[in-house]
Simulated assay, not measured.
Amino acid sequence: MGVLNCAVVGSDTCPYFHVVTRADYLPGHTVVRTNVGRDVAWVEWLPNGGGAYVELRDKTLEKQLVSAWLGVSRDASYRVMYAHGEPYVWIPRAHSICLYQWDPTVTSDVPKLLARIAKEEDDIVTLQISIEAIETGLLEMCVVCVVLFQSGCRID
């Protein structure tokens, strides 16, 4: 089924979100919705692998190109994500992608691990997220990042 059509379950195996990509529902879009059916995010896939737009409900993230929201560093070693006015970075590490609260322009800043995306055996994707990240309002953004990073689609 893959991350474009899946249930996002917690450690208690209870579904929290559903990711839906259906041509008959909203062509060219992937929708993330809560377990009670409230849409929280949309990804609009541009034709011919031309990237994607992303939007999160309630003005958490205005509709914008993924490449603007998740900007690639000059050396292409990480992506910078701004959320609620704070800088975060997604950095590939071995077989995972880790989210840190970190401003790469401040050399004395010590990165704080907030979330980790990993592809496990049997193509199961896991998102480990800290309580602090959830309390900061990053849960939905992290779920969207899982969809973007693991979709196999071009996002820039």
Rank of each mutant, 00 (worst) to 15 (best):
G51H: 03
W69H: 10
Y78A: 08
H29I: 08
R93N: 11
T60F: 07
L148F: 02
N35Y: 11
L127I: 11
V31Q: 13
S130M: 10
R38K: 15
C142T: 07
E140Q: 13
I131E: 13
V143A: 13
K63I: 05
G10C: 14
R33I: 02
P104F: 06
Y53G: 06
V54D: 00
R154Y: 07
C145L: 04
R22N: 11
V31S: 13
R33M: 14
D58A: 08
L138V: 05
G85C: 06
M1W: 08
W45S: 01
R116F: 07
A41W: 04
R33Q: 15
G137Y: 14
L99D: 05
G2R: 09
P111D: 11
D12K: 04
L70M: 15
C6N: 12
P27H: 00
K119P: 05
F149P: 00
Y100Q: 05
A7G: 10
C14G: 06
V110Q: 10
V8D: 13
C14W: 11
T21D: 01
L4M: 05
V8Q: 10
V20P: 01
G37S: 10
D109S: 04
N5I: 04
I117Y: 10
N5E: 08
G137A: 12
P27F: 00
D103Y: 06
Y88L: 08
D24F: 15
M141R: 06
T13R: 14
G137W: 11
N48F: 15
Y78V: 07
C6A: 14
E86Y: 08
G152P: 05
L26P: 00
W69S: 10
Q150I: 03
T60H: 10
I117D: 08
L56Y: 01
E44M: 00
G71C: 06
V40N: 12
L114I: 04
V19I: 13
T30P: 04
K119D: 06
V43I: 15
G49L: 01
D12M: 03
I131Q: 14
D109G: 01
I124T: 11
S73V: 07
T21F: 01
L114Y: 09
